[in-house]
Computed example of a mutant assay.
Amino acid sequence: MQRRHLLSSVLASALWAGLPLVSSTALAQEAAWPAKGPIKLIIPFAAGGTSDILGRLIAERLQAGLKQTVVVENRAGAGGVLGADAVAKSPADGYTLLLGTIASHAINPAMRAKMPYDAAKDFAPVNLLGTIPNVLLVGTDQPFKNVKDLIAAAKAKPDAIAFASAGMGSSQHMSGELFKLLAGADLAHVPYKGSAPAIQDVIGHQIPSSFETITVALPHIQAGKVRALAVTTAQRSPLLPDVPTMQEAGVKGFEVASWQALYAPAGTPAAVVQRLNAEVEKILATTEVKARLYVLGLSHSANTPAQFAEFNRGELSKWQRVAKEGKVTLE
């Protein structure tokens, strides 16, 4: 009886305030979330990578905060597109979530003529979980001691110097494309099927340079197998405090971060999105999780769904410009 009176009061208040009318059934379902059943977190990449490690870290702790089972499902393919599409087409009830990335929500939508979902309209941004710097690397056999050396050589012999990436449409690839545009350095792109073979060919002196995430690159830098010339983020990484940013190295306006984020389908109730955001912020603020993020090379700044949505719009717009100016497309 008390619950019916409460719902009636909410409806009356909404009518008085001129707000959109919401059914009592919808309000009851929202208030009960997440009591209905398990929550599924789709990770659109294979097990073992940064997205998978981070997603499982979040899922395990969400279970405690929400007092509900959180099931992780890896659905890899097409640079994160397949998994993201599955979430976009799921019911907007808070029971299906996505561990999205710069690939699924900025680069692929910017580069592909046809996408199965609208990255700007088909998702409710929940939280920007973290950003990871990429690093410009060269082999130890190369004469380049800094970014200016590499730019000068590339300008002297256009396309004579190649850079490796983890694949077409990866953040590593697009770091190189942005570098070419802003530095005026014509490097030849050589895409690989993942980070491991790409960096191994730089180590083995098969290719002179690459852009790689700091997570993958750090052990090889520390072992002296490759040389780091610059990080791609606006600030230096605490993991490589002596390595300058690309902007410090002379490439004005250069800023790239590979990022990981949490999304729900568009139309998910705002209260559910806010609850998820709050629970995730609690998780990311713990000492244990902060330590894990540090090891992964991830930096997190507290953010609201609205702040993350604004960030996402800026990223999409940025990579649309880079793809257009660099004439880079994915089919």
Score class of each variant (00 low, 15 high):
residue 24 S to N: 02
residue 55 G to D: 12
residue 52 D to I: 05
residue 78 A to G: 05
residue 58 I to D: 01
residue 22 V to M: 06
residue 61 R to M: 10
residue 17 A to F: 13
residue 41 L to Q: 03
residue 44 P to S: 04
residue 69 T to W: 01
residue 38 P to V: 08
residue 30 E to G: 02
residue 68 Q to E: 00
residue 83 G to M: 08
residue 76 A to F: 12
residue 72 V to L: 07
residue 50 T to Q: 12
residue 52 D to C: 03
residue 57 L to D: 03
residue 12 A to V: 14
residue 14 A to C: 04
residue 44 P to Q: 09
residue 47 A to K: 15
residue 45 F to C: 07
residue 35 A to L: 11
residue 43 I to S: 03
residue 78 A to L: 12
residue 87 V to S: 07
residue 87 V to M: 08
residue 15 L to Y: 13
residue 86 A to K: 10
residue 51 S to Q: 13
residue 65 G to Q: 15
residue 44 P to L: 10
residue 69 T to H: 00
residue 19 L to N: 11
residue 28 A to Q: 08
residue 68 Q to F: 01
residue 28 A to K: 00
residue 36 K to E: 11
residue 85 D to M: 11
residue 16 W to H: 12
residue 30 E to D: 15
residue 62 L to H: 06
residue 58 I to P: 02
residue 12 A to E: 15
residue 54 L to R: 06
residue 65 G to D: 13
residue 81 V to P: 01
residue 20 P to I: 14
residue 73 E to S: 07
residue 12 A to W: 13
residue 82 L to N: 09
residue 75 R to D: 09
residue 82 L to W: 08
residue 72 V to N: 08
residue 86 A to R: 12
residue 57 L to Y: 07
residue 22 V to E: 09
residue 40 K to R: 15
residue 15 L to I: 14
residue 29 Q to R: 07
residue 83 G to H: 09
residue 51 S to D: 12
residue 25 T to D: 06
residue 67 K to P: 00
residue 20 P to F: 13
residue 61 R to A: 05
residue 43 I to G: 02
residue 18 G to P: 03
residue 17 A to M: 13
residue 30 E to T: 09
residue 73 E to K: 10
residue 58 I to E: 00
residue 22 V to N: 01
residue 30 E to C: 06
residue 30 E to M: 12
residue 24 S to K: 14
residue 73 E to C: 06
residue 52 D to H: 10
residue 22 V to P: 03
residue 87 V to D: 07
residue 72 V to H: 11
residue 70 V to F: 04
residue 77 G to S: 04
residue 67 K to V: 08
residue 29 Q to C: 01
residue 81 V to T: 14
residue 85 D to I: 10
residue 31 A to S: 03
residue 19 L to C: 09
residue 54 L to A: 11
